[in-house]
Design a protein around this nucleic acid. Structure first.
Length: 921
DNA sequence: GTGCTGGAAGTACGA
DNA sequence: GTTCGTACTTCCAGC
């Protein structure tokens, strides 16, 4: 523990100093790691924070209360443990054979609980790893006793771990690790999911691991960039790297090698640990960018802590339950390291202020976290931030920072009462994300060549607000932070928008000022997208997502508005999906919009799809899957090859397999350019032949357009699903809603102005929030926690695709909402929409897809929802949103009887009406 | 010199 | 068990 303290302190305190300490510890790797380590150290701190539970003062308390101490205990343990671990880790020996575990002893202590569990891992690990590794591992194990916990954590969770343990961490997360540093691991272990997302952050935990790895890793890192240390390290652990896949990679030098591809294997490899190295590598390398990141990191850490707490807590809890360990922090990957390292520098800067203070606090240690967090934030406020030069000063206290703020995986509406957060200009559908090992690939751009633009409508106060931006998922499931991508702050001459990074629940969040003088409008020219290595993230304990082919993301914007009554209204808008892979951008078909969202089971209508990479030979396949993922039906739609263009394709909606459906049936379709070249699933709803098509109505307009409609819905890919899920939500309601209670129905629906956005609101009055948490606890646990759980519920977890979709769906809806898919996308993409979108926003929303709708919360709140709830809870809310909503509703209906639908529709209409009013308001 | 891009090499993994 | 194709990462080079 003590050590821990030190560690934690260090990190924060001065990075530099910190480094020193740790380094000392580490000594070995020290150099190299130093930075990383520092990071780790930091991480640890961070992690600590993560533990949030611990840290989060508020939350923590709540949680504690709620959850149970366990967490706390754990946390503490972890933290401490972390610290130790970290130390240990740091101590190269850690991994290494030495098993120095310098700290070892201590480590042992805290970890204990986990340790036990871990022990298991260790074994595994041992097996896995190479002889050497084994040795190491064993060492680890032994260490383990101490450290392991963390490591174990990793491992176990996934199993992967083994390698992971170290490696994983390292790898993975290094970043992750970083954060947590050990803790994280432990703690977080994974938090998982959520965390994962964040991962990037630094994975401090990893550090630990890394450390271990680090040792190796460090080396690994190869530092090519970094340091030499690597060499040393590498040697140790990495030797394994053998793989080094790429010869090229210099760094690799082994290290890298692994680095690169080595990915998993590396990680896995017994090396696992080695992998650590990997991570290390990564981190190291990355650095390049580092800077930015770094800064981010720092901030992140700070921030993260705060928010993290919530999710983190949850995660932690879950983790505990699960593995026992929780690592919330863990998630953070390697990068972090680099970042961290880099950060160290930068951090120091940033930190300084806070840091020092903290430093003092330093001691804060875990416990301090909270405080620290606070401090940090404060610091920010204080102006420590780098933020630089912008007129806007971050110094302002961020009220919303309060723990009460909704977790990043919560589904929020884009509209609430008079407020409406809209994405006026959607980002391009493709943006090649950069790896840490690469230089930045610039800020996300808009189709028009400019940059995405976000505006908050209805805010008449003179107080500037902070617009938060993070990278979210773009799949069918509920919107949540993307585990494999992180927002990357872009700075430079070409950047006109001030911003600064913050870590929230392992997710990097870019904060951008929304100034009244700018009409609460922000040009997002400061946001790039960073890709985390799949291997690093997948190894995280709680991470369940797969990175492979999971290359689509969305920009998620949030704004928290403090109300006179003390409450906070949180709005969220998600952009259209953005394909981030190099290959995808060149080969995979991408459906940005579809002219028809739903149609009677008889089919026969022509549907226009707009997007990218369509070929004359492209096929459009409709698929219906069971919740368990099994294909229930699949048919190829007729494509009008004469009308196929690279950006548009016209298909005839095939008749549904069952012409007698009594309620809407949601299916999916995708465009296929050949084997393995398929677009993401798009949603489509078959309506009962005799059922009036509500959606259609709106659509009709479009219909009239004929194919042209396209413009109409922009569905987002996702589309989704929502519906189904939503329903399920009902269950959740209680949960979620409850949780959110705060958020009243207001969901208001918002119509939506924002197309994209989905409106959602969540009031998070602290109080409420609290409640939420409680409720959610369970849910919460997971990251998306509240929501997620809920979602699942509805969807029934199963969801399978559907499920997911469902979730998604529901979520999706929400997302969509945000997502723009529907709405936004279109906007951006389609002129028609585009225009409408934002400004028109509400109007346009059609696309909005309600997605946005989403938020369970809303639903919960909404009165109608209540009703609906039963029926289709979620739906309503979402639907509430503009057009999309309607769509959504329908979906829900699937399950519902038409009657319900009718009811729902009415409700929706009512909501919309009210919403519209609000909106204008 | 730095940052942003586009392109492609090399490796791991899955079919 | 081997081969091939795909996806992921890392490099390289040009602007």
């Amino acid at each position: 523990m003590q050590d821990t303290f030190c560690l934690s302190v260090n990190p924060k305190l001065s990075f530099g100093a910190t480094a020193g300490k740790e380094r000392c510890v580490t000594s070995l790797s020290a150099d190299m790691k130093s930075a990383e380590e520092d990071a780790y150290s930091y991480a640890p701190n961070v992690s600590l924070s993560l533990p949030v539970g611990m840290g989060n003062p508020c939350l923590a308390t709540q949680y504690h209360t709620l959850q149970s101490s366990p967490v706390i205990s754990v946390t503490s343990c972890h933290q401490t443990g972390y610290s130790f671990q970290n130390d240990n880790h740091n101590a190269p020996g850690y991994y290494l054979p030495h098993g120095l575990r310098p700290n070892g002893a201590p480590a042992l202590e805290s970890p204990r609980i986990e340790i036990t569990a871990y022990s298991q891992y260790p074994e595994d690990e041992v097996e896995e790893s190479c002889s050497e590794d084994h040795v190491i591992k064993r060492g680890v194990n032994s260490i383990v006793t101490l450290t392991l916990p963390n490591a174990d954590g990793y491992r176990d969770p996934s199993c992967l771990s083994p390698a992971s343990s170290i490696s994983s961490r390292s790898c993975n997360s290094e970043a992750s690790s970083y954060e947590s540093g050990f803790y994280n691991y432990d703690n977080s272990p994974q938090n998982s999911p959520w965390q994962s997302p964040c991962v990037s952050p630094k994975g401090s935990s990893s550090l630990l691991s890394c450390h271990h790895a680090s040792g190796p890793a460090a080396s690994p890192r190869h530092s090519p960039s970094t340091s030499p240390q690597i060499g040393a390290v590498a040697e140790e652990g990495w030797p394994a790297q053998p793989r080094g896949s790429r010869p090229n990679s210099p760094s690799c030098g082994g290290g890298n090698s692994s680095g690169s591809m080595g990915k998993r294997k590396y990680s896995f490899n017994g090396t696992s640990y080695h992998q650590t190295p990997c991570s290390p590598n990564q981190s190291p390398i990355p650095s390049p960018h580092g800077s930015p990141r770094v800064s981010v990191t720092d901030d992140n850490w700070l921030v993260s802590t705060n928010q993290c707490t919530n999710s983190a807590i949850v995660a932690a809890i879950s983790a505990l339950t699960t593995d026992g360990v929780v690592d919330m922090g863990e998630g953070i990957p390697i990068k972090t390291r680099k970042t961290m390292l880099d950060l160290s520098t930068s951090m120091s800067l940033k930190v300084e202020p806070g840091g020092e203070v903290l430093g003092t606090d330093g001691e804060l240690c875990h416990e301090d976290y909270p405080s620290r967090l606070a401090l940090k934030k404060e610091s920010y406020c204080g102006g420590f931030l780098d933020v630089p030069q912008h007129p806007y000063s971050w110094s302002k206290p961020k009220p919303y920072l309060s723990p009460s703020l909704p977790a990043l995986d919560w589904q929020l509406h884009s509209c609430s009462g008079p407020y409406n957060l809209q994405i006026e200009v959607q980002p391009k559908s493709h943006h090649r994300a950069h790896y840490e090992t690469e230089g930045s690939r610039g800020a996300v751009k808009a189709l028009s060549g400019g940059h995405p633009v976000v505006q908050l409508y209805g805010y008449m106060e003179s107080e500037p607000l902070t617009l938060q931006l993070f990278i979210g998922t773009a799949d069918d499931r509920l919107l949540r932070p993307h585990a494999f991508y992180q927002v990357h702050r872009i700075t430079g001459k070409t950047v006109s928008t001030a911003s600064h990074e913050v870590m929230q629940s392992n997710t990097k969040v870019l904060e951008i000022p929304l100034l009244p003088e700018n009409n609460m409008r922000a040009i997002i020219d400061c946001a790039g997208i960073l890709k985390l290595r799949n291997s690093d993230i997948e190894l995280r304990k709680g991470e369940t997502d797969i990175g492979r082919k999971n290359t689509r993301v969305r920009l998620v914007f949030r704004v928290h508005i403090n109300q006179p009554n003390g409450r906070t209204v949180s709005l969220q808008a998600a952009s259209n999906p953005i394909e981030c892979s190099q290959r995808s951008a060149q080969e995979l078909p991408l459906v940005e919009k579809q002219s028809v969202d739903s149609y009677p089971a008889t089919g026969g209508k022509m549907m226009l799809l707009s997007g990218l990479n369509f070929l004359p030979d492209s096929k459009v396949v409709f698929v219906e899957k069971a919740q368990d993922g099994h294909h229930l039906w699949e048919t190829e739609a007729k494509v009008d090859k004469d009308s196929v263009k690279s950006s548009t394709i016209v298909v005839e909606i095939p008749p549904y397999r069952n012409q007698r459906i009594s309620s809407p049936v949601q299916v999916n379709f995708y465009v296929c350019n050949g084997k393995r070249k398929r677009s993401q699933y798009q949603r489509f709803t078959y309506l009962p032949p005799n059922v009036p098509i509500i959606k259609t109505e709106p659509s009709d307009e479009y219909d009239s357009l004929g194919t042209a409609r396209l413009p109409m819905h922009s569905k987002p890919y996702y589309n989704q699903p929502r519906i189904t899920p939503i329903m399920p939500v009902a269950d959740p309601d209680a949960c979620l809603v409850g949780g959110y209670p705060s958020c009243p129905p207001r969901h208001a629906a918002m119509p939506s102005p924002s197309p994209s956005s989905s409106p959602t609101l969540h009031d998070l009055s602290p109080v409420v929030y609290t409640k939420c948490l409680p409720n959610s606890p369970t849910h919460a646990a997971p990251p998306g926690s509240m929501v997620t759980p809920i979602q699942e519920t509805p969807g029934c977890p199963s969801i399978g695709h559907s499920a997911s979709p469902d979730h998604n769906t529901s979520l999706g809806m929400l997302h969509s909402q945000g997502s723009p898919n529907h709405l936004n996308s279109p906007h951006g993409y389609h002129p028609i929409y585009a225009n409408s979108s934002p400004s028109s926003s509400p109007v346009s929303h059609p696309s909005t897809p309600g997605a946005t709708a989403e938020s369970p919360f809303v639903q919960a709140y909404s009165p109608s929802q209540a009703q609906a709830a039963a029926s289709s809870p979620s739906l309503l809310p979402e639907d509430a949103s503009p057009p999309s909503m309607a769509v959504t509703i329908k979906q829900e209906p699937q399950e519902l009887d038409q009657v319900y639908l009718d009811d729902v529709n009415e409700i929706i209409r009512n909501d919309l009406s009210s919403i519209s009013v609000h909106t204008h308001a």
